[in-house]
Design a protein around this nucleic acid. Sequence first.
RNA 1: GCUGGCGUAGCUCAGAAUGGCUAGAGCACCUGACUGUGGAUCAGGAGGUCUCGGGUUCAAGUCCCGACGCCAGUACCA
Length: 488
Amino acid sequence: MSGNKIRRPRPRLARGFRDVSGEDLTARWSMISIVRRVYERYGFIPLETPTVEFADMLGKFIQETGLPTEGIFSFKADQPDWLALRYDLTAPLSRYVAMHRDLPKPFRRYQVGSVFRVEKPGPGRFREFTQFDIDTVGSASMAADAEICCVLCDAFDALGLEGRYVVRVGNRRVLNGVLEAAGVDTKDGGGLVATRVMRCIDKLERLGLSGIEQLLSQGRMDGSGDFTEGAALSDEQARVVIDYLKSQRETRMACCDAQEAIVSGSEEGRRGVNELREIDEFLTAAGYDETKIIFDPTIVRGLTYYTGPVYEASLRDESGKFTSSIAGGGRYDDLIERFTGQKVPATGASIGVDRLLEVLKGADREPERVSARVLVTQMDKTYAKDYVAITAELRRAGIPSELYLGKGNIGKQFKYADDRGIPVAIIAGEDEFAEGLVSVKNLALGKVVSQEVKERSEWLKREETQVTVAREEMLMKVREILKAQHNE
RNA sequence: GCUGGCGUAGCUCAGAAUGGCUAGAGCACCUGACUGUGGAUCAGGAGGUCUCGGGUUCAAGUCCCGACGCCAGUACCA
């Protein structure tokens, strides 16, 4: 009668976070293991770093205040310094390399794990998501960059995406050269203009060339009346950038020629083009042509720390249009220097596991069932130990099996199996045990039969879904049924 | 962050422009008919602070204000 209600917490999830179902998890694991085998084929070895790092290890803190920047999950626990959830796997890798100076280089490692960002969640966009990274640290060779592109291709091929993706390669040096050639002061304001230009090019796919033109100069008003500040380039300067963006050609070589014509006045630009030429040669030598890897001046990537080649893998639809981006990366020669003061060149890429999984899900494969193959029912509790023994026997034979642990009659037990997609049930009661027999029921077949039957009496008569065999023959019979189903 | 739309059972939604009895339906779920057999059928059952908080009113799911959440666009994305 008391009016005092127990205050129960409502079950809920923090914004941008989610549970992952058994089906999705098995799909993820199988994808990861396929990709992992490809990475290992290239000699990359696994590494795991913690989810939590000091905020300044991630390079994400405001110099003056010492506070972590927004965009990352940060907190103080029992220590005076700010901690943060990692927002990518590259910064922790840099920290790791800087902590282990004796690592033989070049060091190739792969790593898969969750990263966290405080961003606005959207469809397929979460605040915790999985990245699968591959990096080569300590090599300045363009062969390392070429290799990253190749390994991405191999991974996508192994996942059955051959022909549906393309790895696009751009170069930050070339872009800088373009700005230099256009007479934009790239050094001013710590490269702020360059960053702005990059960010706006990054939006090309969504806004189109005309939107980019506006963003490069004064700015752009969007549908909702919101105004985005532009990069304040002059018309001629914007012209040069636009020309560069249009410098894509049929072949990687022709693309290099076109870009070179634009940046010829800039040493940095020429150097960038030469890097691309080298990459092209390595790719060709390795046997990766333009159906897999192309040069694309519109690829710049938003991150500021890239110093040279940048990559992005995109899917394309039938018409050849790029749809979703499934991996990205680039060269970051200055990142480790931050810790050690020594230049350690590095390059790598990151596969967006969740996004890729969405694509694979929509494509071919049907979800894998993760349920047991056999349910051992409990007809009569007095035989409980026998049911345990039967289940153990099946498991020892390598057949995923489950002992029914709930309550309820046999009908309910079949329903349980049916709901979970368990195709076989073992039934044994007084009748069977008296003669050393067990009944093996083919539930999957029964499901088919049930479609054709309307009357219950008739349904119960259909005995072909169940056979009673000697206990010793149980394994054989179960295997037979499972095999028959597998072949269908 | 900004703009707009939405928020009623586990799910999909009625009810609301005009406040008024115990807030409904379908699906899903549970129990039984059916004794040792899933489906179908039938009978029954459970499930709601109408997102939350305040206000107006004799009376609020309905009207007003605010917060939060979700969706779309836009910005940010190191």
